[in-house]
Design a protein around this nucleic acid. Structure first.
Lengths: 237, 237
DNA sequence: TAAATTTGTGTAAAATAAACGCAAATATTA
DNA sequence: TAATATTTGCGTTTATTTTACACAAATTTA
């Protein structure tokens, strides 16, 4: 019987990488962070940020490092998504297994910071994503699915919004990402009923319509309620 | 900028393994499939079945192969669980990243088949699992959490039961795994309302009580309903 | 000053979930 | 043989949650 993690008969030549699907949201549009990669001297592809894992770093450290190096973006939310590694036909000498991560940033980060190689980093609208390198389109799709699902059972939408937001922004975010109509009044009632959304004294300056209060997501209160066993769920017919 | 998947500066010496958390259920008890491993000449540990991925096989093929080789168990349900690889302190020269899989077998498979090295393979009750090798206790916990969660939003419990089962078995399975009381009548009503459970003409032979009909999970009907967008959910107060 | 726009609140009806009781069919026991 | 214990199968009532829907308030623009 083989001894797990120790010697094996023939030397294994598989490399391990991490990739990140980073979502951003602004004005009813969902974006994914992409970088441009050159293959050889001619082919250029868009791809997800990522790269090989170094021996002395954890997987999540590797993701953060690559995001920093390649895009200079720091994320608000980060979790493992899925591990892709079934493309064994491409080149067995260079097989790469990629641990994909799922990340969210708030809308203030959608303008890329100066010291980035801005020509080669870009926020791309979700439905305008071109053919990406490797299996990255598949990874994006899985990330999108994760986002849609999580939105309904975890209060994760706040990580895509400014710290202070309008209720209408939250509504639009849900409608945009899940792609369904929501009754504004029922949505508001439900969201407020959980008790982790705090109304601030501030008003947003909008051009039109009745002045609207700004709200915040009360993280510590959410954590407290979570421990008590509250059950967050937003159903969208 | 580093070119993804191609050469990197220093050679990466990380190996990739797969491990499986295989759950089985029988008579209101939940079991996990474990194997015994020797480390050197003295230390023996129980561990999850698994091993290094070969270069010419997909991850899922690797899991199935290891399960076959080490335990001779074929699973009914198999999906990726999580990738563990943050223990970089143990021995950097032998860092292993493990892609853990989550699997279910029906109760007929709980008696290990003869040609297995039965002394070194065992079904262990979930709350009698000893200290396992590596981070395998953590993997089991995550598997258990996945099982609990999935049970509520995917009709996965049937993969732990015989093809023909009693309603009381299904109830007990839910109560055992989620660890909460269920109202028998409401549970039955809810389950039947989905329309993918078929009543057979057969009766189970029990020693006591009113004779009970056997039921089956109608997979094709479930798939049809799934396409139509039905929403399976079992809530347990 | 009227119109357009967006916010904020409430209520009634419908659907779903929770709580609960009892008869039926068997094996076992008195 | 009759009473008892055990488990199945079904139905009803009540409480809770979700859905559908209307109007007034506060601002800017025409």
């Amino acid at each position: 019987m083989y001894i797990h993690g120790f010697m094996s008969a023939h030397h294994q030549n598989i490399r391990i990488a991490v990739d990140a699907v980073v979502f951003g949201y602004q004005k009813s549009k969902l974006y994914v962070l992409l970088i441009q990669q050159k293959f050889g001297s001619q082919n250029t592809y868009w791809a997800l940020p990522g790269g090989l894992v170094q021996e002395d770093e954890t997987l999540i450290e590797a993701v953060k490092r690559e995001l920093k190096e390649e895009t200079n973006v720091a994320v608000n939310y980060l979790e493992q998504l899925y591990t892709f590694g079934d493309d064994i036909t491409r080149d067995p000498r260079n097989r790469v297994i990629s641990v994909a991560y799922f990340a969210l940033v708030d809308s203030s980060k959608l303008t890329l910071i100066a010291n980035t190689d801005a020509d080669h980093v870009s926020w791309v609208e979700i439905d305008k994503i071109p053919n990406l390198a490797f299996d990255h389109n598949e990874i994006v799709q899985m990330g999108l699915q994760r986002l849609k699902n999580k939105l309904t059972y975890q209060p994760i939408g706040f990580d895509l919004l400014p710290q202070k937001f309008l209720f209408s922004q939250l509504e639009n975010l849900y409608m945009t990402i899940i792609g369904k109509e929501i009754d504004r009044r029922n949505f508001r009632k439900k969201m407020l009923s959980f008790g982790f959304i705090t109304e601030t004294e501030e008003f947003a300056n909008k051009k039109t319509g009745r002045p609207a209060k700004l709200y915040t997501f009360n993280v510590s209160e959410y954590k407290r309620l979570e421990k008590e066993g509250i059950y967050f769920e937003i159903k969208l017919a």
